[in-house]
Computed example of a mutant assay.
Amino acid sequence: MNKASYRSLVVALMQRDFKVAMRRKSDSINPLLFVLMVVTLFPIAVGPSHEVLGRIAPGVIWVVALLASLLGSERLFRDDYLDGSLEQMVLSPAPLELLALAKISSHWLLSGLPLVILSPFCALLLKLPIEGWLTLMLTLLLGTPILSAMTAIGAALTVSLGRGGALLSLLLLPLFIPLLIFATAAVDSSLLGMPAIGQLLFLAGFMVLTLTLAPLAVAAAIKVSVN
């Protein structure tokens, strides 16, 4: 197969994922509803203090984003595994790593990008000072692809298990800790009037490294699960 054929196959795979998502809109909407519910209820539980909410807002939004990324993550490859599509991906002449990257991209477009777009509204609800809004969006823009990539690795490892949701959470949560630390530190730096370029560069490097290595790990995990 030439590059044009690879490109067509990747586009067809992503289009298929979008069509499936449109038929089962709840799978895409539920994580966003979870984010909105937690962000809306949090000020009621903590209190309406602008100072308190503004200080904890970056951590709250990022923790909610991490948890939302785990909702339904086990279904990332589960349906493909059950209907035999995963075996066809393994047998496809296209590199399995390229198809894994296409699945990661589809997952981010359906779950990560809407969260980035929704983040200013979440920041407003949690009374985050406007000085931190842009940095918050940048951290989510750089961090949500990492969430999608790591989620894909965990989903590929547990795809052959009957109920892999709990195991998936145990596998992924420790890996999210560095991301959470640097993302919230970047927003805090902006709120203090300090440059956040160091933390953002770390997130950018982490994203490039993850998106480079994750397809390899996903492909290896799929081969193990299918065989």
Rank of each mutant, 00 (worst) to 15 (best):
L109D: 00
L179Y: 12
G132N: 04
M150G: 08
V159C: 09
L147T: 04
L113F: 07
S106K: 11
T144D: 06
G132H: 05
A155L: 02
T139P: 08
L168V: 09
A123W: 01
L140P: 03
V208W: 11
A102R: 01
L125R: 06
L170C: 08
L101F: 07
G198L: 15
E97W: 03
L115P: 00
L115C: 03
G132C: 08
A102Q: 04
V116A: 02
A156Q: 02
D188Q: 15
G193A: 09
T212I: 06
L98I: 00
P215C: 07
S190G: 15
S106Y: 00
W133Q: 11
P129H: 06
T212S: 09
I153P: 04
V218M: 03
L170H: 11
L128T: 00
S119N: 09
C122V: 06
H107K: 08
G193V: 09
T144H: 03
L118C: 06
S106I: 06
P215Q: 03
A100G: 05
L115R: 00
G205K: 06
A217W: 10
I117F: 05
P215G: 07
M137Y: 13
I130Q: 10
G164H: 09
F206W: 15
G165P: 02
L168C: 06
A204D: 07
A183L: 12
L167N: 09
L173M: 12
R163W: 04
E131K: 12
S106W: 00
I197S: 15
T135Y: 12
P174I: 11
L167P: 02
L216P: 04
A102C: 01
I146N: 02
L179C: 11
F206A: 14
A149N: 08
S169E: 07
L138M: 14
A102K: 00
M194C: 13
L101R: 01
V218L: 05
G165Y: 10
W133N: 13
S190F: 10
T139W: 05
G162T: 11
L192D: 14
A102L: 00
P195S: 13
G154H: 03
T212N: 08
F202Q: 10
L115S: 01
G193D: 11
I146R: 01
F182S: 11
P195L: 13
W133M: 13
H107Q: 10
L200M: 09
T158F: 09
D188Y: 12
V218S: 02
R163I: 10
T212H: 02
P120C: 05
